[in-house]
Simulated scan of single mutants.
Amino acid sequence: MDKTALSKKLAYLFMGVVCGLLLGAALMLFNGPSKIWGRTMLKTQEPFVIESPDNDGRDYRLPAGTVLYHDQNYAEGFTRYIVYFNYKGPIAHDEVPMEPKYGGVLIAPLWLSDVEGPDAAANVRRPAISRADVAAAVKSGEITRKDLQEILRTSAR
């Protein structure tokens, strides 16, 4: 094969790849990425309890406004959703060795439930309130300095 024929084939291949990328970008722009991936996106209106994976006696909270991606409905009466997290830096972790019983994929979902009753709300970990949070509450008028002094006085006892 001569150089001209090879150059033409490479040019056609390059044009095909570029056209494919442009088509994919156009589909994402007009249809949205969730339609391409075949997943419906849901934005939660209320917080949920995330049950502990290690039975440590504590549950955790998924905040309202979290976007969930519908994954699969099950005949047993529950639905699985996917959520994505960003994290800076390395994560302390244990490696999960791939075993033949996993079939190449290990999915270990956690259970999500509504926040209900005093026991559920009391068992959910909440982040500590920072100085900036307190200052913002005082500045916004949600809490007065007098209220803050009273809170500190009663909690110190």
Rank of each mutant, 00 (worst) to 15 (best):
L13N: 08
Y12A: 09
F30L: 00
L10Y: 15
Y102V: 08
P90Y: 09
S34W: 14
Y84A: 10
G16M: 05
Y102I: 06
L10W: 08
V134D: 12
Y81M: 03
A75S: 13
L152N: 12
L152P: 02
A121K: 02
L42N: 11
Y81K: 07
L10D: 09
S113L: 08
I107R: 09
E76R: 11
D59P: 09
E95A: 13
Y12L: 12
S113N: 13
G20T: 10
Y60T: 03
Y12N: 12
A25W: 13
V17N: 12
L110Y: 01
Y81F: 15
A136D: 14
L106P: 04
I91M: 14
L27S: 02
L22C: 15
G117R: 03
L6A: 12
G38E: 10
A11K: 15
K3H: 12
E76L: 08
Y12D: 15
L29S: 04
P100C: 15
G65C: 04
V115A: 04
Q45V: 02
E95K: 13
P47A: 01
E51F: 03
T4K: 11
L21R: 06
G57M: 07
K139F: 05
L13R: 13
E76P: 04
E142D: 12
T66F: 09
E142S: 09
K9V: 06
A137K: 06
M98S: 15
P127V: 02
K9P: 00
V67W: 14
E46T: 13
A132F: 01
V18H: 06
Y74I: 07
V124P: 11
V49L: 02
M28L: 03
T154L: 11
G57W: 09
A136K: 10
P90S: 06
A132L: 01
R153F: 06
I50P: 03
R61A: 07
V96G: 08
K35Y: 03
R131F: 11
S140V: 03
W111V: 04
K101N: 10
Y69F: 13
Y102T: 09
L148F: 05
V17I: 15
F48K: 01
D2Y: 04
R80H: 05
E150Q: 10
V124F: 00
V18T: 14
P33T: 09
V96M: 10
I82Y: 14
K43Y: 01
D54N: 07
I50W: 00
N86D: 14
K88C: 03
M15G: 10
G32N: 03
I143L: 12
